[in-house]
Design a protein around this nucleic acid. Structure first.
Lengths: 192, 192, 192, 192
DNA sequence: TAATAACCGAGACGGTACGTCTCGTCTTTTA
DNA sequence: TAAAAGACGAGACGTACCGTCTCGGTTATTA
């Protein structure tokens, strides 16, 4: 038995306008200057329409992430048989994506958003790739003998992404060429 | 020839009261609920006295870090000759310190503060130990042959700390026993 | 064709609460101690709600005057055929009204408010009666021959009210019995 | 027996600098924008030096009045035998003086200062001439028969000055030519 | 000719109020 | 009945002044 409802249905237009406005303002002014009122004004939408569907700024930003409006959704690292090369390419893409969007300043905004909102945090894990996708590539490496059987796969993934975040948070110089290689090198070591 | 200035001198009492109030409120309510008015009220101080000496919340928090009022200042990893053991002990201490102060929620607050304020960011690097102290321990490891000569020492340090941060930011389960070991294992590998 | 606007309408409750609070605080503490924050707190209203509708303290006080919440709105002097008696009664009522509300101190507050805000100044002219109402009584006196045809009617009205104000401003002893008569006598002279 | 005191004596330089600064700021920005800090800065003086000798802004302004730094001290109306002419000249001078210094806006500032400070109020009475000097001229007029013996002399003086103040307070159009004559006419009437 | 006051400039201090901004909720009208 | 518009109570922001209280440095007496 389908449940019936009368009246207009959620406006897809409004939803898209809000997400676009949020993504645009996030990119141009950063999460700390992102306000509900600003999003509503930019989107040409009542504030209530935002609060009706999302509980907070964080929720809106999280949905932007899901939709790939803030960060292009990361592909999994590919499997060419050479783990180091695969991870290096994958990390390079991430670093370049961030650089394109504003570099460390943008990344810091993203980190603040993630730290303030569990929705964003959870989403960012996917968008940045610090999740199953790396782990499954690492698992393949275990199978192929590139990594030993009891290697702490999740921690390796986290160390790779973490090395990127930490540079943004702690104001180390912005990312340079070769950074991805050095990070992979740092985590995977010479001859593993 | 010393330069002379007349007039009253900065009140050390007020400075300490402000930092104590800020540290206390940070610890109990988190950075996002930390307000200049709250600090002033808690410290029994005029707001202007805060603005006179610090330009922002971030500045105050950074000085709290310097004074070791938020995080105990980290000792360098010791050098017992066994790099993995030394790093593991050092990282365990850091994790326990954070856990004691509120765990990942506290760490997230710290990260937000660091991401929003370059002063805090720079200070946090020292307080969390993601700086010269690890690197110099790693350098010793190079000399003793535990690490190869061209290992990317800074990136190794960042990967270690980054693995801790990333778990907080991305809402991975709070830190457990053995976490330090696994992180060190992830970064240093089996038999380096 | 009426212009339409969507959205909530101005809250009459808030408006009245604000004016009551302002009038009450003015009467009890004087204009110089009247603060926007005090009004907002007393009225149980956000400060922004005051600023949304009035630009300044002066505007609020002016509207209090319009509403007769500070000074009862003055009736015009009546016309019994005896100008001096009519003016004397009228001025006596004004003096008694002021005396009741705090005497010269209250009047000084009113004068400060008027001097600082053109809205209050314009309104006070009406409330104190230094306007058309006296002049029209004087015009009747011209018609009945009590005043000569080219008497400077406006200046006469201003001199009457001015004699009251000047005693407040210049800290002359507070108003006594017979004051109204003497003022009317001073301005109209013996046998005009 | 003179009482003796050790230490330096009050600095005449500072006193004059403060009064000049106050008078200058009053003239250029008005009493409502006159601040103790502004005076101190303009005078190149410590705030305490002001508070040491005057209790308040009002006190400083009152002394400016005494020194004739805000308003030239008014001469008494002269006695040519023609009361109306004498008063008219005297009032014209007052109006011209005010006009020169900023007109009604300046006068309003003066009124606010007087209403807020009893020292200024008392002083202004002298400076504006609403005091013994008019009354004594009026008394001469009684003696010469121009005014009847029981005319309320003080109230006449107050009505004259009051008519000027009331125009400033109540935002009536700024003073015009002939105003003095009309005011004298209003108060003294045709043929007294 | 010290010692001792009080003056002076400078300005830090605890406060109060300012006017603005944003929050999240609530209310009204339109479609 | 969702959506736009936007008013509302709340409260933090950063600034301006308040009046008091140190600071050193600098005069004038007084011992």
């Amino acid at each position: 038995m389908a449940e019936h409802r009368t009246g207009p249905v959620r406006s897809e237009q409004a939803r898209v306008d809000i997400l676009s406005a949020a993504a645009h303002l996030f990119a141009s002014r950063g999460y700390e200057h992102l306000t509900m009122e600003g999003i509503a004004a930019e989107a040409g939408v009542g504030k209530q329409t935002i609060y009706r569907w999302w509980g907070s700024k964080g929720g809106v930003v999280a949905e932007c992430l899901i939709e790939g409006m803030l960060l292009p959704i990361r592909p999994a690292p590919s499997d060419s048989g050479d783990l180091r090369a695969d991870l290096s390419i994958w990390l390079t893409e991430i670093l370049e994506g961030i650089e394109l969007l504003g570099g460390n300043a943008f990344l810091r905004s993203l980190i603040v958003a993630a730290a303030e909102s569990d929705e964003v945090g959870a989403r960012l894990r996917v968008s940045l790739g610090a999740d199953a996708s790396v782990v499954s590539r690492l698992r393949a490496a275990v199978r192929s003998g590139e990594l030993r059987a009891d290697a702490p796969l999740e921690e390796i993934g986290q160390a790779l992404i973490g090395a990127v975040l930490v540079r943004a948070v702690m104001r180390l110089p912005s990312l340079q060429v070769g950074a991805a290689d050095r990070i992979v090198d740092a985590v995977l070591g010479e001859l593993r």
